[in-house]
């Protein structure tokens, strides 16, 4: 049940799905780094990045609309940045009367605001297309191959594995609580304090279950020869065509970024 919400991978047979996870990861991060380096008002570069990202999304056949819908995830943060429209000095463009205060939007403020929004929007789409076309365990392997410390890779794998189990347990706990509190008093209420306390107990219960599960897992690991050292198979060498794709992609990204600074 939790897995329908938590699963982000979308199965497919596209060349984007088939691309080596290491190449995908490096290219995705490079794209986001490039976007974050762009100065305000680099519309041409942003347009080029967006075109690249959309081409990738279309090639992956996961559906542009789906990605765009999921990309709304960063929306709440706009409330924070919208303030710079009125605070960056520049030529007044329009005013917003708000009772006692009148806010004046400036051209420089608008320029910076739209740059940030666009950068953020492109970056989120890049991250989305990466997770939609790459199994998370492949991302983890790629991180290991790129020398993330072993212990972090191991922790992330355990976390990913038990995300689904514990999210299910959390939902069961919530449902049980809601049944009980509805039975206790028709409004499903109690004071806020009481509700907070019950929720804290649920958190405690979940914590205990997780703790006990980790001990059982530890025993299961011991039983299969774990002695404290984690081993993994060596990563396979990069396929030359994947390598070429990665280098080509990185070159294009660097050129786009350079254009924004030089052009």
């Amino acid at each position: 049940m939790a897995q329908q919400i938590l699963e982000r991978y979308i199965d497919g047979a596209s060349s984007i799905h088939a691309l080596d996870a290491r190449v995908k990861l490096v290219l995705a991060v490079t794209t986001i780094v490039c976007a974050s380096l762009l100065p305000a008002g680099s519309w041409l570069a942003l347009l080029a990045l967006t075109a690249l990202v959309w081409a990738t999304i279309i090639a992956s056949s996961v559906g542009l609309l789906l990605i765009l819908r999921r990309a709304l995830v960063a929306l709440p943060f706009l409330a924070v940045v919208v303030t710079i429209v009125f605070s960056v000095p520049g030529q007044p463009v329009f005013t917003v009367p708000l009772g006692f205060v009148t806010l004046t939007a400036t051209d420089a403020g608008l320029l910076r605001f739209f740059t940030i929004v666009w950068k953020s929007w492109v970056s989120v789409q890049v991250a989305l297309i990466l997770t939609a076309t790459t199994h998370f365990f492949d991302i983890l392997r790629a991180l290991g191959a790129l020398h993330l410390p072993k212990i972090m890779v191991a922790l992330l794998s355990f976390m990913y594995r038990y995300l689904f189990v514990l999210a299910d347990e959390a939902q069961q706990l919530l449902r049980a609580r809601d049944c009980r509190s509805a039975a206790l008093d028709g409004r499903g209420g109690g004071s806020v304090w009481w509700r907070a306390k019950v929720t804290g107990q649920l958190v405690g219960t979940l914590f205990l279950r997780a703790f006990e599960r980790s001990e059982r897992i530890y025993v299961a690991m011991l039983a299969r020869g774990y002695t404290g050292e984690l081993r993994s198979l060596n990563a396979r060498p990069l396929h030359p065509s994947d390598l070429r794709f990665g280098l080509g992609g990185a070159l294009v990204l660097v050129l786009i970024t350079l254009q924004a600074f030089l052009g």
Partner: peptide, 12 residues
Amino acid sequence: PLMGVMAACIFA
């Protein structure tokens, strides 16, 4: 295993 499962637990 403890820290890995705990990370999942915090998430949940």
